[in-house]
Simulated scan of single mutants.
Amino acid sequence: MEVGCWRGGLTLQYATLAQWFSKKLIVIDLDAAMLSHAKNLVDKLYPDLGVVYFNGTLANYMDSGEFPDNVVALVLDADHSYAGCKKDCLALKDVHDKCRMFIFHDFSMRRAEDPPHLGAVDRAIYEVFGKDVRLVPTGLKMTEPGKPNEDGVYIESSEGAILITGWNSFK
């Protein structure tokens, strides 16, 4: 059903969807400890779901030859640096035709020390897909715009964005 790069709780939501719709869930994470944490959470609730867990990047997973041909949604939530986000967005070129949508987490995430600038996720999306990219906002505003939480982070608008592949192309 989807390929997710995530850390914990959100993976449970995708696991629930995968079970409801009898789809496969693939979880990709750079951090082996966080991948193990996600696995423990999912396996407790859905021991028979048959989730695939992969430690590495999306590009690493694609290089493994295991990327499915018909993916409903690919969820990206891993490296929040600009360089990491841009690398992930560029890697999407190789799966654009195999996937119906890309879901980006932490869209509009800002840091207190750098509020006037685009967040890393936003900037990477706009640079790779162009300023006219069509995005569907998703998720909540977990903080007030301009008012950072205790970690110095705030969400400017929605916490996520969905890019429908048929509506968009690469620059």
Rank of each mutant, 00 (worst) to 15 (best):
M1C: 15
V3S: 14
V3P: 05
G4I: 08
G8R: 02
G8S: 09
G9N: 12
L10I: 05
T11P: 06
L12D: 03
L12G: 03
A15G: 11
A15K: 00
T16N: 10
A18P: 06
W20S: 08
F21D: 14
K23Q: 12
L25W: 06
V27P: 04
D29L: 08
D31E: 09
A32E: 10
L35F: 09
L35G: 02
H37N: 10
A38H: 03
N40L: 14
V42D: 04
V42Q: 03
V42C: 07
K44Q: 13
L45I: 07
Y46A: 04
P47R: 02
P47E: 09
D48S: 14
V51R: 01
F54D: 00
F54P: 01
N55W: 05
T57Q: 00
L58P: 02
L58Y: 12
N60Y: 09
N60H: 13
Y61T: 01
M62I: 15
G65I: 02
E66C: 07
F67W: 09
D69A: 15
D69V: 07
D69W: 06
V71N: 00
A73Q: 14
L76G: 02
A78G: 14
H80I: 01
H80K: 01
K86T: 03
C89L: 05
C89G: 01
L90D: 11
L90M: 13
K93I: 02
D94N: 14
V95H: 03
K98I: 02
K98R: 11
C99S: 10
R100L: 12
R100N: 11
M101A: 14
M101W: 12
F102V: 03
F102W: 12
F104N: 04
H105S: 10
S108E: 05
R110L: 08
R110K: 12
E113S: 15
E113V: 15
E113W: 15
D114E: 12
P116A: 10
P116S: 08
L118H: 07
R123N: 05
R123P: 00
R123M: 09
A124R: 00
Y126F: 14
G130M: 08
K131S: 13
V133R: 02
V133K: 03
V136G: 05
P137K: 05
G139Q: 06
G139V: 06
M142S: 11
N149D: 15
G152A: 06
V153L: 15
V153R: 11
E159H: 07
G160C: 04
A161Y: 03
G166Q: 11
G166A: 08
W167C: 13
S169K: 09
S169E: 10
F170C: 11
K171L: 14
